[in-house]
Amino acid sequence: MRMKSLKRLAAAGLIAATGLLGAVSGSLAQEVTLRLHQFLPPQANVPKLVLDPWADKIEQESGGRIKIERYPAMQLGGTPPQLYDQARDGVVDIVWTLPGSNPGRFPSTEVFELPFMMTNAEATSRAYWDLFEKHMKDTEFKDTHVLGVWVHGPGMLHSKTPIDELSDLNGMKIRAPTRIINALLGQLGATPVGMPVPQITEALSKGVIDGCVIPWEVTPALKVPELVENHTEFGGDHALYTTTFVLAMNKARYESLPDDLKKVLDDNSGQEFAAFAGRTQAGADGPSRQIAVDRGNNIIQISAEDTEKWKEAAQPVYDQWVAEMKEKGIDGEMLIDEARALIDKYTNN
């Protein structure tokens, strides 16, 4: 009997030891939960086509050790202009936002928002990443760990009354996303109204604005084709404008990760991710445009020849921006030259 009892005790001890080892090995797996906060509803194209696939890939390549919780439409509180500081301060772990939501804070990014600067979203996003690494990473964005930067596809006008030529803009209240686009609209004769993208739907429906500038891809989520009947596109090789984005992570949170999990994030960051994000976001333009076409909306196309008149009218925006950059100790002309050279390089590759 005594021998059987000893055997039972030994077996129980082995089971307990095995359980303890399992618990230790489980803790070594170091599961990490990261909270991703952004301003668009979950069904919008950027979360659906860019952010969710990116987060899914991180989870998969980490073997499940990283979990990314997604919080759309400002579910964790605050307003879109507060997103960057939420990442900087550790209120959340990762944010997707517009640098331009904080006017004057990220001045170098504005070079890509200058009128008729961008060609296509992939080439311009690659150029943006290069310029970010050279001029912005250790200065304007030094307070966070940046995972990606990119731009959307060609920005255009959506309005309640037709915009066939420059003079049609006179006195129209047009929503703009950033300081530079506000300046552009003002220079072209409109009354610019700055507001975050989630406010567009209500502002259009209540008549606060007569139109807005956004790319095609976000129009369905905002019900724009239902609220306006006119959409003005531009010919030529360069778009009227684009907007810069950043996917930023709390620096301390990134640095706290073990090296192998940092590598998972690193492998899904940088220029190739920028190119993917820009290309994918712009890729949703066509299907979104078709929604407006199917509704019978008025698609206005400014010819390449007439677009040159818009370019000439927009030139003072460049001059003013260069002067503003000089006051900040930034060589605006140099940034313009570098951005153009990089965009041309990646457009023609």
Rank of each mutant, 00 (worst) to 15 (best):
K328M: 10
R340K: 13
E140P: 02
G155Y: 06
E327M: 05
G155M: 04
G90H: 08
I300W: 08
A314Q: 06
K262I: 02
G278V: 03
A17H: 03
V293A: 12
W321T: 02
H152L: 12
Q60E: 15
T161L: 13
A323V: 01
I330H: 00
P41G: 04
G148N: 14
E217I: 07
L185D: 05
P177D: 11
A323E: 13
V224H: 06
K173V: 09
D56F: 11
E110G: 12
V224S: 02
T219V: 05
A12S: 13
T347N: 11
V151N: 07
I336R: 08
E122F: 03
W129R: 11
A282C: 03
G211N: 06
G155C: 04
V293K: 11
E59D: 09
P42S: 15
E324M: 01
K328Q: 13
L335T: 01
K309C: 08
K48Y: 12
N349K: 12
H145L: 06
T124A: 10
G332Y: 00
Q187H: 03
P220R: 07
T109D: 13
G189R: 03
L169E: 09
N268I: 07
D260K: 01
N250D: 01
Q38N: 10
P220Y: 06
L98Q: 11
P115Q: 08
N268Y: 12
A339L: 01
I181H: 09
I181A: 10
G332L: 00
G78K: 08
P80Q: 04
F141H: 05
G104N: 09
L261V: 03
T18K: 04
Y84K: 07
H145P: 02
Y128L: 15
K7A: 15
F141K: 04
N102E: 15
N297G: 06
A282S: 09
K57A: 14
E217Y: 14
Y254K: 03
S288I: 07
A55S: 14
H135F: 13
G286T: 14
A275F: 05
E165Q: 15
Y346F: 04
P215I: 03
V208S: 13
R2F: 12
G189W: 03
G236F: 06
V111A: 06
I291G: 02
L257K: 03
T242C: 05
V146I: 11
A183M: 12
G26D: 13
L98P: 00
K67R: 14
P42Y: 14
L76Y: 09
V224T: 08
G13W: 00
T307F: 06
P192T: 03
G278S: 02
V293R: 11
W310D: 09
W321I: 05
M172F: 06
A314F: 02
S288C: 04
G211H: 04
A12D: 12
T232G: 07
A221L: 02
N45M: 14
T347M: 08
S62A: 11
L14F: 05
V95D: 08
I330Q: 00
I302A: 07
D260T: 03
D168H: 09
N348R: 13
P99D: 05
D337I: 00
S101L: 14
N182D: 10
F39L: 13
I302P: 02
S303V: 05
I68D: 09
P316W: 02
E140D: 07
E272Y: 03
K67E: 12
H158W: 14
V146K: 04
T97Q: 05
A190Q: 04
R295P: 00
D130W: 07
T244F: 00
D237T: 13
V218P: 01
Q43S: 14
